[in-house]
């Protein structure tokens, strides 16, 4: 929303005024604003970062404030793939299959340093960053990341979603 507010006549014309009667926006911004609070995450949780994922999901930090609280345990119902923890080469086919089962539009979050770059597992077993397997939209550093970092990552992803063009926003919309 661009925040420009212009007064127009309220329905009914009662003459009452309120602080938030009218606002203007662009259709694509309105759609983006609606979409960014409707994230359905699929937690692909493999390692100790899961503890931090639970912490950030629960009431003290509460990802529900960002509309991102309801995990879907089927990738077909999810649009945010949260890869939480180390992904080994042996797991990589599973991660790819989960990603490919998700419907467009979809986003991927690399949660923690292992998912981002392999972390300190620079060896035969671990994938050095899930972006070798699937495209990643937001990387969250930390071992494990602080809840504040995760929330910052979610908000950055929200910005990205809000700025992206949805297919319904066309010249006939």
């Amino acid at each position: 929303m661009n925040g420009r507010v212009i007064p127009i006549e309220a329905a009914g014309g009662s003459g009452k005024s309120a602080a938030f009667e009218y606002l203007t926006t662009r259709k694509d911004e309105l759609v983006g604003w609606a979409r960014k609070f409707s994230i359905f995450p699929y937690p692909f949780v493999t390692a100790c970062c899961a503890m931090e994922f639970m912490a950030v999901s629960s009431s003290p930090y509460d990802t529900d404030r960002f509309g991102a609280a309801l995990p879907r345990f089927s990738p077909r119902q999810a649009d945010l793939l949260m890869v939480v923890g180390t992904v080994t080469h042996k797991q990589a086919p599973i991660l790819l299959k989960v990603y490919e089962q998700m419907c467009e539009p979809k986003w991927v979050m690399a949660f923690g340093v292992c998912a981002t770059s392999g972390g300190f597992y620079q060896n035969y077993a671990a994938v050095p960053g899930i972006d070798r397997i699937v495209p990643v939209d937001v990387y969250i550093p930390g071992c494990p990341p602080r809840p504040e970092t995760v929330i910052d990552g979610i908000m950055q992803l929200q910005d990205k979603i809000a700025r992206s063009q949805h297919l319904i926003v066309n010249d006939r919309f």
Partner: peptide, 27 residues
């Protein structure tokens, strides 16, 4: 613990420390 197709034995001292044998081809 390893997978079919893995060549070598990773805990031998002469296995290259950073050598990867991905199953899924990298992007």
């Amino acid at each position: 613990l390893l997978y079919e197709g893995f060549v070598g034995h990773p805990l031998r001292k002469d296995y290259p420390k950073r050598k990867e044998q991905p199953i899924v081809p990298y992007r």
